[in-house]
Amino acid sequence: MAYANGIRPETICVQGSGDRDDQYGAVSVPVYFSATYAHPALGETTGYAYSRVNNPTRDELQKTVAALEKGTEALAFSTGMAAVTAVFELFGTGVHIVATDDVYGGSVRLWEHLGRRLGLRVSSVDTTDLRKLEEAITSETRAVFLETPSNVC
């Protein structure tokens, strides 16, 4: 990082992660269209091997989003639904999830689709009511899936 921690959100938006290692001093992040990366020698790496796994342009985006969200790591997916799908892949088969009752319809479609295939059960709950939320959580519950503010507000 070229600048100190504690930098403010507006500045993170503009300046990104703060990495300043471009060899030409480019102020705008270069777009690395390379699908693959040459290795200096066997057992040596530039840090990159194949763009599905990582890519310098995407890395900068991921670091920027992680910094804005006060997280340690972000992953950039091709769509929002791909990100939701990856999270549901974490949970495995036969699990129970509690979800906000007015989530985006695309998320509902995903777990109806996965539900049939993976034995996933999702309880839709009015999560503004903490008592209802507590009652919905069982020993098989792996996660609570929230939108706040929820879709349609």
Binding site: T72, E73, A74, L75, F77, S78, G80, M81, A82, V87
Partner: peptide, 10 residues
Amino acid sequence: LAGFTVVKDR
């Protein structure tokens, strides 16, 4: 079109 996951736990 884009999507993200962000976590704090390694």
